[in-house]
Nucleic acid binder design. Structure first.
Lengths: 141, 141
DNA sequence: GTCCGGATGGAATATTCATGCGGCTATTGA
DNA sequence: TCAATAGCCGCATGAATATTCCATCCGGAC
């Protein structure tokens, strides 16, 4: 049924037009448009539409997914290649978090990471890979 | 007490390091760091830190506050100055929402708005103000 | 037609979160 | 020193949301 998609489109619009505090409120607005539904349906729609409740109101989050590494960029300080390794310097204590984020990034040519306190040693397959990975990280600095 | 700020700083870090599904989970992580608290406190902290639950996990929303008007930009169609007025054309039915958003923008020189169905009449102090306001809106088109 | 199988949605329920309120502590100002 | 005030917190509880489980509705295969 395209019912669902009509409803979701309406939800998008409604969220843009005016702040919506909770699902019940959204429900009423939908009903006024002849698009009845139950609260569970809204819960699912909102997740599908990537809507977040921020402050007191729902808001569509347009952006592309921010990867863990991107989220951590404020903790990064520098990247230096050393043969088949990279030394990534971070804020004190942040190394393990950064290492985990780097791992999860699934960067091509990245073999593994080893975290100290404020430094991550990144092992890569080749010096060429080192360059690529380095560039990727540098973009965030 | 600076207890609260230490806790909030820790929350920031924790949210960056790994996804957190709910407040209870966050609570445990905080306790491991010796920063015990109760669930209500977290609820308040999360709002104060401008954290949203998106998909299944909490995520800090790095401000860049989107004003109501910016949210509505997809509903805007055109702006035309007419002496000390602007005629803003919108998607059908969107005028009142747009008018409200314009009001809340507190634009300098903007006197008031009057919404029809798909058009907002914006009254401004002077033709110079009209130019400024017009430019501001045009940026969004 | 009948029988899946997937997709959708609802009722009931479980879970998660927000808030009213009172208590405690620290601070201010007389 | 002693109110008075402000800030932070926790408990209890209710509000809001997520999830489980089931019914129903297609559309296709047979």
């Amino acid at each position: 049924m395209q019912n669902r998609d009509r409803r979701r489109a309406a939800i998008r619009e409604l969220l843009l037009e005016a702040p919506v505090r909770n699902q019940e409120e959204l429900l009423e607005k939908l009903e006024r448009r002849g698009l009845g539904a139950s609260q569970p349906v809204l819960s699912r729609d909102l997740r599908a539409l990537n809507v977040a409740k921020l402050g007191g109101a729902y808001q569509i989050v347009e952006e592309e997914r921010v990867t863990p590494l991107e989220q951590l960029k404020s903790l990064l300080r520098s990247v230096d290649p050393v043969s088949k390794f990279l030394l990534v310097s971070c804020e004190p204590g942040a190394a393990s978090a950064v290492a985990r984020a780097l791992d999860s990034e699934e960067l091509d040519g990245l073999v593994g990471t080893l975290a100290g306190d404020d430094t991550v040693l990144v092992a890569v397959k080749s010096t060429a890979a080192a360059q690529r990975v380095r560039r990727r990280i540098q973009e965030l600095l």
